[in-house]
Design a protein around this nucleic acid. Sequence first.
RNA 1: GGUACGGUACCCAAGUGGUUAAGGGAGCGGUCUGCAAAACCGUUAUUCACCGGUUCGAAUCCGGUCCGUACCUCCA
Length: 502
Amino acid sequence: MTIRIYSTLTRTKADFRPLVEGKVGIYVCGPTVYDSAHLGHARSAITFDVVRRYLTYRGFEVRLVRNLTDVDDKIIQRAHKEGSEWRKIAERYAAEYSRDMGDLGLLPPTVEPRATDHVADMQALIAVLIERGAAYAVNGDVFFAVAAFPAYGRLSGQEVSQVRAGSRIDVDERKRAPEDFALWKSAKPGEPSWPSPWGNGRPGWHIECSAMAARHLGVPFDIHGGGSDLVFPHHENEIAQSEAATGSTFARIWMHNGMIRVDQEKMSKSLGNFSTIHELLGVHDAETIRAFLLGQHYRSPVDFSMMALEESRRALARAYSTLARVDRGDWGRRPGGAGRAGADATAASSDWLEVERTFQAAMDDDFNTARAIGVLFEAVRSINRLADVSSEADSGGCVRAREGRELVAKLGGQVLGVLQGDAQAWLERDRDRRSAQMGLDVTWVEEQLLARAQARSERRWADADAIRSTLARRGVVLEDRPGATTVWGIADAEPDAPTKDA
RNA sequence: GGUACGGUACCCAAGUGGUUAAGGGAGCGGUCUGCAAAACCGUUAUUCACCGGUUCGAAUCCGGUCCGUACCUCCA
């Protein structure tokens, strides 16, 4: 089975054949480091983290390049506003981004190039463009001449005439045509600048990606990724610059992730409706955020809400409790559960080889993580069924359940970055976090548990139940396990009722 | 105005020509349990915004209508 990938360039899925057998080069547009990263940045990064992980799982040697734009108008503005130095701003937010991505469980990119380390590469590229007549210098600025690149607009489906009709284009007398864009900006007082053949200045935004991709992957390369809001003009301009300069294809496949929406609007800095990654990680586990994002296809817009995140948390908690159950060898408590039909279903769905094949088929189809997660949840149910009907720890059913547990952890962990690590520890962290959020006195809960255990051992059921109700009113739910042990957890909030915080 | 993408159950969501329309959340009924919880079983879309058309066959293709979102030089 071959992997099929949707390319924005062709608007269709096609079989993936890398340029070099067994190897894949990917370039993803990273952030401009002028402020904290929000969920939208996380989505893009996680999308391509999973692309990379899956291709690696399928045996490819992946080289992932994700840049940092560390010189830009917004960085300079921010520095002026804070009375700071632009390099310090860039440094601060680059470090924060790196920390956030690590916290979200992203594998570090193979290379994380910075624009300021590639100014010479950009200048060389600009020089070639001027030499070829695709760019022109005017008083220290250099512009790309869109007219010199007839294929301009192919990626976004825009026509130059229509672009020109757009009212948002800056009128700039120095440009030959309104759609031309800056490759090099002449230095202004108080702004960072580098010497160049056209005078002191700094690079335009688009040229950095062309230069860094060429430097770290060579041209052409396999996959270029980024948010769908970058299709026009950023990626369109990258193509124009790179292909006008080299005469060759730039990126073979263009992948774009969809935007995050809040109340039917795009989450963005300018609208102010964003949640930073750091804030979200204060409320939810990284894997919950990953599961939420990966629960829908990467190209679709996703509507963000705290309720939706909470649903993902519950789903993940269910999977984790199954893994933990297998780990502690909790077998055969409800032999009647599955029934005849259930037993057949179990046999069919606990064919782990088949499960892995189905998972692969989902991921092969343009990285359909939503379907892949569905496969994992079906496996979780099978594991529970097996555990329900099997009792001897060395019986076939228990062995199969353990194998299933390993498979779920392997696929989830290696490919999606969820369900990795110790299941019991995840559940405990989840409980601790939620009890803290509710302001629950854990010591008091433990005392109640002891009192109830005493009552139960004396068969004072009414007293035991009274304690259960008292705890329930505080949102604590009890689970009596085999033996004399009782574990406690936090009850799920009513779906429609807002969470009480008083 | 131009360019794309989308509208599937109570909610989220996968499915883009053909067996019972994934999965998750929520609800309800049941098994199990001292009572519970968890888990499991069953159940909640004869139907995929609406109207036409193509086809032996359509959620899926085509045309139209309505609604939503994004992009059109700040954006992941």
